[in-house]
Design a protein around this nucleic acid. Structure first.
Lengths: 223, 223, 223, 223
DNA sequence: CATGAATGAGCTTTCATTCAT
DNA sequence: CATGAATGAAAGCTCATTCAT
């Protein structure tokens, strides 16, 4: 990669990061190109050298986040060397929650209701959540086949599980941000995005939280 | 009430209904006064004879819906003559779901993420959901005191329960609308808002759905 | 005149009076039809039964006031039985000032700059003031012919005299209203328009004021 | 100053000039942003790159003019080396009139009645005229102390003097414009604002006019 | 006659996007 | 490449005037 290409890539990243902060702070509609270029300290026109539109830069952030989450979910394997299915499920929960909390800015946008976005993103995000639901349905199905899950309406339960997870994560993020905002109101604008390993006020630490959630799902569904 | 007052009230309702349809179709930010007056087939100025602003008409819809839901939730009573606590919970679920599905347009707006709204509504809706969470926490607390609920992090579980319910209801509504849209694409604009008594594609009938959900919560939380 | 005609005339007067108060309070552009019908306690449509437009009702007030002033100015007569020319001038000043202060609401509007009005009124008022100027020019001319006035540019002096009078009257009215507003802030809306016979703060009583002004025109200030 | 900054400053000036022409032609209330951008031949949004609102651009014009006038008025000095007090007064008149006629567009707006403006400007302009009145009062006071002015009600005379000056200047400006409009009705929109050194129809040349006015204040007209 | 609901042109202001420098 | 001035469509809202009741 040439020097110029490197510079270009860096600039692009900087703009993406600025947009991430802005969208996460204001939401999709309230955020304006003006906000993003202010945050990124670039000229108006420069933005359009790297992205064609507001929708496009948002789509890129969206895709990055969805890929991140997709990568942290593993199909439950029945191979005994992969460990107990329930432990695999726990690991999945754990990974998803960790990734979400490590990218709280993107998560704060994407976990919200797709209606808040533009049409393209709406479709994309809806499909993503549908995939997650299908994944959960499959897991229940397999669990049932193995005699580990009670009989139930798989779709309903899968949707419920997704909703529960979303709500918890969104509220944890909000709680954390409120806490951060009150502790450090004199933060530099470019403050660290994520990385706090303590959970949010009102919620237990992540290990206990995962256990709690798993128990909720497990004893509700599995025998 | 005089004839004129009746006409005025009807007009007001018609505009509210139009706004309900528009907000429910486009969300708060995407909906413009222009959309509402087109839908209501009135002139620009007419809108402002009945409502001062976009925010005001939205606030009215919001309050109507929140009141509706608040009215359909009853505190769990320990008085034996009020029946089993679990049956009371079931009745609550049933009522809420019925009301939501009977007012699917309002619900489609209000169940979504508060971030999508204006500042006033955001606060109002957040407080509403917080109240619901507190209600669920209390129910679990009481259940635990009676030896009917296992030990758990009540806040986490309450949030999860709320999320599960929201997700299910939102998806049922979306599914119904998609179904309606495909069966009757030539519907008149003022088509019946609600009233379908069949559940949405992919979800069971309401009675079974309530049972399913209750079982999910009950066997997950209560012993 | 029939009973109905009387009622009609009364209604008309009431609306005119309301408009007078409103225009005098807010000025031409800031005053809206809404303000006038609120003040008059009539329905919107009723206004248009009596006046065709905002401009028309204003024109009527304007004409009434201009007629009033015209009626209080008398040509200087050389007939000895009519008294000294200077005393006639004094009487003119006195009458104009009295009339203006007795109709301070109309005066407060009409003495202001014609630019603030609509095109028709602008022309009309400009012509009125032009007539006044011509009148003063004639008076100086006659005075000069009689050896009572020194040689001067008659147009310039006439304009100066008009300006001096206008400024004094406007400022007296403003001072009075400020005083009234502070003494009686709990006045009923339909309070007495005029009739105060004391001069405004900062200005002497009317007799002395007329003398002062006459002396200024007659002898100037500096030696 | 960079090239870009110069261009920007020029553009700003062009918009200010357009606004000056429009306000001077239509007055504050009748002038719309639409008029200004039409006159300046710019797009709607461009206006808002340079000024935040109609009020702001008007305030800028107002301040510029008031500064101009304030700068052309000098306190009367009693130091013999500064010349005769009456000559100093004459010089003041002369400077004010010259400045006003050299900036006839601004003057045409600002000399009019403050009621025609927005609230901020009203206050600002009223205070300005009050200062002028106070200045004249002081001048008379000093004159009286020196035995050069006769005894009189200083406030009344000061107000009269201000009114006389205003009226003359406004009418000169109007006369000039009417004359210009009729001689050159096919003028380009950006025609020269000011600079005509002949006085307006009906009024004498400036030197004679100043003498005339001074004589009027000093000696009056009638014997 | 009286009413007041209805109208729609017009206002100020915002903002995603383009393009000459 | 980078810039930021320029654009204009579209938003929310006001108000003089009309007209069915």
């Amino acid at each position: 990669m040439t020097r110029a290409q490197q510079r270009r890539a860096q600039r692009r990243s900087a703009i993406l990061a600025a947009a991430r902060r802005v969208f996460s702070r204001k939401g999709y509609h309230e955020a304006s190109i003006g906000d993003i270029i202010d945050e990124a300290q670039i000229a108006r026109g420069t933005f359009y050298l790297y992205f064609h539109s507001k929708r496009e830069i948002f789509a890129e952030l969206r895709d990055a986040f969805l890929e991140l989450i997709r990568g942290s979910v593993q199909r439950i394997s029945l191979d005994p060397s992969d460990g107990e299915p329930l432990q695999q499920m726990r690991a999945n929960f754990r990974r998803v929650m960790t990734v979400v909390l490590e990218h709280e800015q993107l998560a704060a946008i994407m976990l919200r209701d797709p209606m808040s976005f533009d049409a393209d993103t709406r479709v994309e995000v809806e499909q993503f959540f549908d995939q997650i639901i299908t994944l959960i349905e499959r897991a229940i199905e397999v669990g049932h086949a193995l005699g580990m899950a009670r009989d139930c309406d798989r779709h309903t339960i899968a949707v419920a599980a997704l909703g529960a997870l979303r709500e918890i994560l969104l509220r944890m993020i909000d709680a954390r941000r409120t806490a951060n905002a009150s502790t450090a109101s004199a933060d530099s604008a470019g403050g660290a995005e994520d990385g706090a390993n303590h959970s949010a006020e009102g919620f237990p630490e992540i290990e206990q939280l995962v256990d709690e959630l798993l128990a909720f799902f497990a004893r509700g569904v599995f025998t």
